[in-house]
Amino acid sequence: MNDRADAAGDADVPQETGALIDHILTRYHAMHRQDLALLAPLADRVEQVHADDPDAPKGLARAIRALAREMEDHMAKEEMILFPAMRAGGRPGIGHPIAVMRAEHDDHAATIALIRRLTDDLTPPDHACGSWAALYGGTASLLDDLAAHVALENDVLFPRFETR
């Protein structure tokens, strides 16, 4: 979850559509799944260990799991419907599933805002233990990656097919 390149500045982002989709699948979809699988149990542990601490991120594990469900549903639609259509060169009407994906990108903002609110914008208190700090750092990396992922799809991949 550390030291990942920003998609906008990542010189390794392929230009060819199929290779770009492969990049999104391996660099973002796979990493999001891995990160979320680690963050939810870590959030559970921090919430349990620090249950009496008023600064504890109560409800964070639930919010991370909600984001994971939203993202899994979204990524599955891309993987099963949208990306195969794009690999095939697009088709009439592809603008509709792209519009749905864009709307879902926007919808993730509510859960992300909740996560930021529960964590004081991912700023651990001075007395936070190592697990608490790691939870916030990992969540910050996930959200940064998610923003780069969304930008790559919205600004690079989707426009290739929206004029068809």
Rank of each mutant, 00 (worst) to 15 (best):
L114I: 05
M80R: 14
A8Y: 08
A43N: 09
T119K: 08
D120W: 06
L42D: 01
L60V: 01
L25A: 06
P57T: 08
L25S: 07
A76D: 09
A109G: 15
A110T: 15
A19R: 13
L20A: 14
H29D: 07
I98E: 00
P57E: 09
A76Y: 05
A63E: 00
P84D: 09
A85T: 14
I21E: 01
I21Q: 00
R69I: 09
H74Y: 06
L122K: 07
D12S: 15
A88C: 04
G59V: 09
D10S: 05
L36M: 15
I94E: 05
I112C: 12
E72Y: 03
I94H: 04
L82N: 02
D6T: 13
P57C: 12
I64C: 04
V46H: 03
D126S: 14
H32W: 01
A113F: 13
A68E: 10
T17R: 05
I98P: 11
A30N: 15
P14M: 03
A8V: 09
R62C: 08
A5S: 07
D3F: 09
R45H: 14
L20H: 06
T123L: 07
P41E: 13
L42S: 07
A76N: 12
A109E: 14
V100E: 10
R27E: 13
R117F: 11
D106S: 12
I115N: 06
L67I: 02
M75T: 12
R102P: 06
R91Q: 11
D52G: 10
L39N: 05
P14A: 05
L39V: 05
T17I: 15
A5D: 04
I115A: 02
A11H: 06
L36I: 04
H96M: 10
E47L: 01
H50F: 07
T111P: 03
